[in-house]
Amino acid sequence: MVQFEMKRRKEGGKCHSGANCFSSKIICGDCGNFYGSKVWHSTSKYRRTIWRCNHKFKGSDKCKTPHIDEANLKQLFLSAFNQLITNKEEIGENCKMLKKVLTDTAALEAEAVELQREIEVVTGLIRQCVEENAQRGQDQVEYLQRYKELVARYEKVRGRLEKNEELSCARKVKREQLDAFLDMVLRQDSILTEFDEGLWYAVIEKVTVDASGGIKYTFRDGTVITA
Rank of each mutant, 00 (worst) to 15 (best):
123 T>Q: 14
115 L>D: 00
62 K>Q: 15
113 V>L: 00
135 Q>V: 14
99 K>I: 15
70 E>N: 06
109 E>Q: 04
69 D>W: 02
99 K>P: 00
124 G>N: 08
71 A>W: 03
144 L>K: 14
129 C>M: 07
76 L>P: 01
107 A>V: 10
102 L>P: 01
135 Q>M: 14
109 E>K: 12
77 F>T: 04
135 Q>S: 15
127 R>H: 12
59 G>Q: 04
85 I>H: 12
77 F>Q: 05
102 L>N: 13
60 S>A: 14
79 S>M: 05
132 E>L: 08
62 K>A: 09
102 L>R: 10
144 L>H: 15
107 A>D: 15
123 T>H: 02
88 K>T: 07
115 L>Q: 01
126 I>N: 02
60 S>R: 09
142 E>C: 03
97 M>S: 07
112 A>Y: 01
101 V>A: 15
63 C>W: 12
60 S>G: 14
73 L>P: 03
121 V>W: 00
138 Q>H: 04
140 Q>E: 14
141 V>P: 01
64 K>C: 07
67 H>T: 10
125 L>W: 07
79 S>D: 08
110 A>F: 01
106 A>T: 12
103 T>S: 13
135 Q>A: 09
118 E>Y: 00
108 L>D: 01
70 E>M: 03
92 G>N: 07
85 I>K: 10
107 A>I: 10
111 E>Q: 08
109 E>Y: 03
124 G>W: 00
78 L>C: 06
89 E>I: 09
93 E>R: 15
58 K>V: 10
59 G>I: 10
66 P>R: 03
89 E>F: 05
142 E>R: 11
141 V>G: 15
142 E>D: 10
133 N>A: 13
76 L>C: 10
128 Q>N: 14
138 Q>G: 02
57 F>S: 13
89 E>H: 13
85 I>D: 08
57 F>C: 03
93 E>S: 08
74 K>G: 02
96 K>D: 12
137 G>K: 07
132 E>F: 09
64 K>P: 13
129 C>N: 14
126 I>Y: 03
91 I>H: 11
116 Q>A: 13
75 Q>C: 10
67 H>R: 03
138 Q>M: 12
114 E>Y: 01
101 V>R: 14
71 A>D: 09
81 F>V: 11
129 C>I: 03
87 N>S: 12
121 V>S: 00
102 L>V: 04
94 N>E: 10
138 Q>S: 10
77 F>W: 05
101 V>W: 11
118 E>I: 00
73 L>K: 08
78 L>M: 09
136 R>D: 06
126 I>C: 05
64 K>N: 10
120 E>R: 00
126 I>D: 02
107 A>P: 09
97 M>D: 07
125 L>R: 09
125 L>P: 00
57 F>M: 11
95 C>K: 04
66 P>Q: 06
125 L>Y: 05
102 L>T: 07
127 R>W: 09
69 D>R: 02
75 Q>Y: 12
108 L>E: 02
124 G>Q: 01
95 C>L: 08
93 E>L: 07
73 L>D: 07
105 T>K: 03
115 L>H: 01
67 H>K: 04
105 T>A: 11
78 L>T: 06
87 N>K: 06
58 K>R: 15
101 V>T: 13
76 L>I: 07
77 F>N: 03
126 I>F: 05
57 F>Y: 13
